[in-house]
């Protein structure tokens, strides 16, 4: 895999690892950007890994563009044979699928949807060949997701499901974006899930809502004490279905600051995962093992 480098004006270097999405491409992006972060090269201002690419913002007065490019190409070479292991964590995110808020907003913007007669979930189930919404939800929460990028707006994770390509859930975005999306909506566009970190515009299909704040400038939840943004690229997420009563209890806990997330340390091995995705993802830690 050879990376395509291209400059975005005089301050950005954009690196496309692969035109198509895959976990190995994402892993390469994270490996290089992770290494760059450790090197603390003077003149690099921003290091932004993305799904199958990354970009850097640099100050060309301190670090000339050509020099940066050479350093990156060397880094790419030197990392080619490095072990594809990631020390990360698994975060369980409770989701009320098919909740009234996203259903209401979805109904309001039906004219912007491919299928105005169906709900987002009904449409997604149908285009992915599922017999029912329940079966689609079972697939959605049945395997964990990899945070392959954080961005668009503050703290929004893009999530790529840890299953083989033919099992990937794919749903087109709305025909034209909505002007409203509830905060903490579980969205889906293309092969990516996302969690809307803030209320606002959005074009992804809406499947449910989580009571867990994932971005909070006031940092009022204990798990956001170190950073106002919960997710980092490389985090693993498992969606845990909940119902109305659990959702309301969680919202109450968020309000009084006692809400907790289940978070487990994980040493993720890309080769082991690729050798047997199904078995590997089931071996990951989580509260489901306690049941």
């Amino acid at each position: 895999m050879s990376i395509r480098y291209t400059f975005g004006g005089d301050e950005f270097l954009f690196a496309e690892v692969s035109e198509s999405m895959s976990l190995p491409a994402c892993f390469t992006s994270m490996a290089i950007t992770g290494q760059l972060r450790q090197l603390q090269i003077p003149g690099i201002m921003e290091i932004c890994p993305a799904n199958a690419s990354f970009q850097l913002r640099f100050d060309p007065d301190i670090l000339p563009a050509e020099q940066l490019l050479q350093q990156l190409q060397q880094l790419e070479q030197s990392l080619a044979d490095s072990p594809q292991i990631l020390d990360t964590r698994l975060v369980e995110i409770p989701v009320w699928y098919n909740d009234p808020w996203t259903r209401e907003v979805g109904a309001r913007f039906r004219q912007r949807h491919q299928d105005p007669q169906a709900t987002d979930l009904e449409y997604a189930a149908r285009v992915n060949g599922f017999a029912s919404v329940e079966a689609f939800i079972a697939a959605h929460c049945g395997a964990p997701w990899f945070v392959s990028m954080v961005g668009f707006v503050a703290g929004l994770p893009f999530l790529y499901q840890m299953v083989e390509r033919q099992q990937q859930l794919q749903v087109p975005k709305y025909l034209s974006p909505r002007t409203a999306t509830p905060r903490q909506t579980i969205g889906h566009g293309g092969c990516f899930a996302c969690i809307y970190s803030v209320e606002g515009a959005g074009g992804y299909q809406m499947f449910g809502i989580t009571p867990a704040p994932i971005y909070d400038p006031a940092q009022s939840q204990p798990y956001l004490a170190d950073s106002m943004v919960l997710f980092r690229p490389g985090d693993i997420v498992r969606f845990k279905p909940i119902q109305q009563q659990q959702y309301e209890e969680a919202i109450q806990a968020v309000a009084d600051g006692s809400f907790q997330l289940d978070i487990f340390p994980v040493r993720f091995s890309l080769p082991e995962f690729l050798a047997n995705p199904q078995a590997y993802q089931q071996s990951l830690p989580g509260t489901h093992h306690a049941h």
Binding site: G8, G9, E11, F12, F14, E16, S18, E19, S20, M21, C48, A50, N51, A52, S53, F54, Q55, R57, M149, G151, F152, F158, G190, F192
Partner: peptide, 9 residues
């Protein structure tokens, strides 16, 4: 595939 956007892009 969703990627980073440079300022000014």
């Amino acid at each position: 595939v969703d990627a980073g956007y440079p300022i000014g892009s």
